[in-house]
């Protein structure tokens, strides 16, 4: 990726990012932020490469921290975003739009109910 073609890449990606978020309704701002938090977890690819080339003990320690932290970014970012969006799914189903039902939806509904108070669960279900 030589200098100038890289700049074009940055320019176009920047425009893409701007356009992607420009018309997001405000209720989706939080999921969007969480989703982009997940996307920059791609830093894991770089961290793997950095640790993969580490020779000395110090380099290995730094690389290990990088990979572990980036993995946590990826997994945590994904789970939090998905749990958040599952709640929106549930609201859509209540409204009568059954298109959103999938085995995954049902599973996550059960998960969220577990954390809710037990007396409410029966009423929701």
């Amino acid at each position: 990726m030589s200098g100038v073609s890289g700049l074009y890449l940055v320019l176009l990606a920047g425009v893409a990012g701007y356009v992607l978020i420009a018309r997001v309704p405000s209720i989706l701002h939080t999921p969007m932020m969480s989703g982009s938090n997940f996307i920059h977890g791609i830093v894991l690819a770089g961290a793997m490469l950095a640790l993969g080339g580490a020779d000395t003990f110090l380099e290995q320690v730094i690389g290990f921290i990088a990979v572990a932290a980036a993995s946590a970014n990826v997994v945590g970012g994904f789970v939090v975003t998905d749990r958040m969006l599952a709640l929106f799914d549930k609201a859509t189903i209540k409204k009568g739009n059954y298109a959103g039902i999938s085995p995954l939806t049902i599973k996550s509904t059960v998960e969220t109910s577990d954390s809710a108070q037990s007396d409410d669960v029966s009423k929701i279900a």
């Binding site: 990606a13 990012g17 978020i21 420009a22 982009s36 996307i39 830093v43 690819a45 770089g46 490469l49």
Partner: peptide, 20 residues
Amino acid sequence: LENPAMVVAGTIVFAAGSLL
């Protein structure tokens, strides 16, 4: 690291995040 996926994803997050 010459990884275009990181460049593009990072830039998208930066642009979208700034606007957000």
